[in-house]
């Protein structure tokens, strides 16, 4: 009796270790883009359509996969009644990028340079990423107020591109 109890104990330890591994793995198995996407996606309102507001307020879904099945949802630069249509195509790309890379974008912005700033400069057509980096660092709290979602951050960036002299000179107008 004792023997089998011990055996069961060991088996239990082994199994729970496996199960724990499995849990983590189950949790991890969804690729990141799916985790960000959440359940379901649909035709986006605007531009690239990469970002769709989910059922709960504040929840943002990102559709990244461009397999043929989902390709349509991202294909059209249209304007319909959905919100965020004030943002041009370039901004939709930026908003998607910021949404997915938010933790790193914020860190690079606070530092004033970094790879994600280079990518944003690429999206905004800025010839000098350092100008954009310096601006994002200087106005960090304006851009990255915790209340701002990716769209709001993008909107403020686009505004700076139009109003700030240095940025205007360096970047294409949106």
């Amino acid at each position: 009796m004792r023997k089998s109890l011990y055996a069961l104990l060991i088996l239990g330890v082994g199994m729970s270790a496996m199960a724990q591994n499995e849990q983590r793995h189950h949790h991890r198995r969804k690729p990141l883009e799916q985790m960000v996407t959440g359940q379901g996606y649909g035709l986006a309102g605007c531009g690239l359509g990469s970002i769709v507001f989910g059922p709960q307020p504040g929840m943002v879904q990102v559709v990244a996969a461009t397999t043929n099945g989902t390709f349509y949802s991202q294909s059209f630069g249209i304007t319909s009644g959905t919100s965020n249509c004030d943002i041009p195509r370039m901004g939709q790309q930026a908003a998607e990028f910021i949404q997915v890379n938010k933790e790193i974008v914020m860190k690079d912005a606070a530092r004033g340079n970094g790879e994600t700033i280079n990518a944003l400069a690429d999206i905004f057509g800025c010839s000098d990423a350092n100008v954009l980096g310096a601006d994002m660092q200087k106005h960090f709290s304006t851009y990255f107020n915790p209340k701002n979602n990716s769209y709001e951050i993008t909107r403020r960036l686009l505004k700076s591109l139009k109003t700030d002299a240095a940025l205007k000179a360096s970047c294409k107008s949106a």
Partner: peptide, 12 residues
């Protein structure tokens, strides 16, 4: 097969 921006993969 699926294609997506490389930054998804870097992030992941």
């Amino acid at each position: 097969f699926a294609s997506m921006h490389y930054y998804f993969k870097v992030r992941e």
